[in-house]
Write a protein that binds this DNA or RNA. Structure first.
Lengths: 107, 107
DNA sequence: TTAATATGCAACTATATGGTTGCAAATATA
DNA sequence: TATATTTGCAACCATATAGTTGCATATTAA
């Protein structure tokens, strides 16, 4: 199908999915689908589709418990985006003002 | 239309556009469209569309000189992606092994 | 056991996206 | 001046995407 990095970037390129992901990251507990969809204006099915996309990118996991499916965030795939970015960091303005970048580049 | 960050993420979510962008970043000189498209299997018009998307995201600039249009990369918009990522860095595994993250979090 | 709740699946719609081809216009070269 | 090169614009096509609704099913609660 497509690259892992492409799958991840496409998943977060949608603003609604970023919102859903964010809500799950800051949530103190896993949330069932209905509860997530209650926070948005689009239908539950619309939310379910977004959740599937996020799950496909590895950005969320879902645990089924009885009739409910509890979703929680897994930010780890974003490390790949970070790595992709890292190469270009040396080319953008102000890069050398950033200590971490400096350390990366002298090693 | 849409968020700046959404525009940027959508631009880099396409693998062909990432390739084009990368080619321009590592190029030592600005490249005319025909020369860029010669490096890819898709048509010149296909490349032109991608260039427009990249330009719309601010990731490249284009200078017209005579009949030619010279393209060069501008990685600065990626700083916004980096900032978006930064928030989630604290939630991913191994974040504290990274000195830069550590420094960010004690300040 | 009956009713309510949470969900998945399928079908459908509208629009966006990635790609193509054909043609006209501007610029450069012979 | 005639020809070749570089490009933009417009139309078109196929598929992907973001969303909807309707219905069936499983689990929980009354």
């Amino acid at each position: 199908m497509q690259d892992r990095i492409t799958t991840i970037l496409k998943a977060v390129a949608d603003p609604t999915r970023r919102e859903i992901f964010h809500a799950l990251v800051v949530a103190t507990t896993a949330l069932p689908i209905t509860q997530i969809s209650s926070q948005f204006d689009i239908s539950r099915q619309g939310i379910t589709k977004h959740l599937k996309t996020l799950e496909g990118a590895g950005l969320i996991n879902i645990d089924t418990k009885g009739r409910e499916r509890f979703c929680y965030a897994n930010p780890n795939p974003l490390k790949e985006v970070n790595q992709w970015l890292k190469f270009y960091e040396q080319f953008w303005d102000g890069a050398l003002d950033d200590l971490s970048n400096y350390l990366d580049n002298i090693s």
